[in-house]
């Protein structure tokens, strides 16, 4: 199947790690979360824990004061705009790949959020929002009574 050519690739990827990554990606796929690469800006990841959810967004080169974050019950809305570099007269682009413009993203968090304790940090172009569960939404342990 693979002729000698296949192995002549200069950069062989680590197959073990790559398989593992593929497997976890497949698991995610079948658990109903479909990755939507490259469609929306900013790209968002959501991490869920027992006490809170962490939402991260890649937003390089944005003034953190101009990022609007609003939370209503279990819905998080992120909006703002990314400014274009203004070129002076006589300056020309050779290459323009970075995107700019206004954006809005709305996400539903899998539980009710304690709005008063939401915390957001912007560091190195990455926005991190911590959304704690509201008291009612915290998982409760139910003990079983024995007769």
């Amino acid at each position: 199947m693979f002729g000698p050519r296949f192995w002549r690739f200069g950069r062989m990827i680590d197959l073990g790690a790559e398989m593992q990554r593929l497997q976890s990606e497949m698991n995610r796929l079948f658990s109903g979360y479909i990755p939507a690469h490259g469609h929306e800006f900013p790209a968002i990841n959501v991490w869920v824990g027992k006490a809170d959810a962490i939402v991260t967004a890649e937003l390089p080169g944005v003034d953190p004061k101009k990022i609007d974050i609003s939370v209503v019950a279990d819905t998080l809305t992120l909006s703002g705009s990314r400014e274009k570099d203004v070129l002076k007269e006589g300056e020309t682009y050779h290459r323009q790949e970075r995107s700019y413009g206004s954006y809005t993203r709305t996400l539903q968090i899998p539980f009710e959020v304690d709005v008063s304790k939401v915390d957001a940090k912007y560091e190195k172009g990455v926005l991190r929002i911590t959304l704690p569960r509201s008291e009612e939404a915290k998982p409760k342990k139910i003990s079983i009574k024995s007769e």
């Binding site: 995610r28 929306e40 790209a43 959501v46 991490w47 869920v48 006490a51 991260t56 890649e58």
Partner: peptide
Amino acid sequence: PDTYKDHSIAYYEY
């Protein structure tokens, strides 16, 4: 890499 203790990824785009 982003890793958060006791958290699992629920949705990812990047």
